[in-house]
Design a protein around this nucleic acid. Sequence first.
DNA 1: TGACAATATGAATAAAATTGAATATACTAA
DNA 2: TTAGTATATTCAATTTTATTCATATTGTCA
Lengths: 125, 125
Amino acid sequence: MSINYEETANKIKLLAHPERLRILDVVRREPECVCHLTSLLGKLQPYVSQQLSLLRKAGIIEDEKDGLNVYYRLADEKIAVWLDDILGEAIGEHSKISQHKKLIACPCPKCETETEMMTESVFAR
Amino acid sequence: MSINYEETANKIKLLAHPERLRILDVVRREPECVCHLTSLLGKLQPYVSQQLSLLRKAGIIEDEKDGLNVYYRLADEKIAVWLDDILGEAIGEHSKISQHKKLIACPCPKCETETEMMTESVFAR
DNA sequence: TGACAATATGAATAAAATTGAATATACTAA
DNA sequence: TTAGTATATTCAATTTTATTCATATTGTCA
């Protein structure tokens, strides 16, 4: 039962990146599509897809296709606990996320639905 | 209370390294001197000092000088918890450590003393 | 089918981390 | 003081990682 430091370090390495951390901080709350994450991060779409690809290949996140959109979520509960340790508990911050959803310009169906439900006055489209 | 992803990533980055992880896995159990860590890692002393320097400057470990020797330990309990999450609990593996101590060729006073009798740590107060 | 929209991949370059080697510093003892 | 031992620092070469951009793929709908 000895520790493989090499392997452990490689796993952590993927989390040691600001944009990837931010992606994980979002998708640990609920699955989000690429266009949504792109808007949130303020980066170009290919860049975001690359980070997602790294996380996906490492088994940290999973993707689920829905038509044109691809939604990403955490691959398992162990990673959620990991993120809780690193970023703090994710519970109780959903309102903050919802606010984000209103602010960003994301054309995905999920966002449109949520925007209709939650925002009436401030941001008309 | 929003998260600084940049800062968080930089902290994690230091842990995402096999030799540094190994150093931390040793010193989280009890303080060890540089010559001891050098023997354990099987690397050159300047290399080990470099890694220690990085960890020290980031506030992850602390040093305490005792004559010629410099002993390193974790800087605070929060980091110990962090390492427990990453490497597993450190409890109950002291015998393994002691064994290591006999096997490696470390000339520091602490090692010499410990092979004779299990004495208290340098940091004991 | 063709056009379009969302996402993915690959290649080139820029930036940063890793490492080894030479050398410097600090402490002790004679 | 000088010699010897433990540790630290600096620098340059190499390797790895980050980032951008152009382009490819995939799914939808008229």
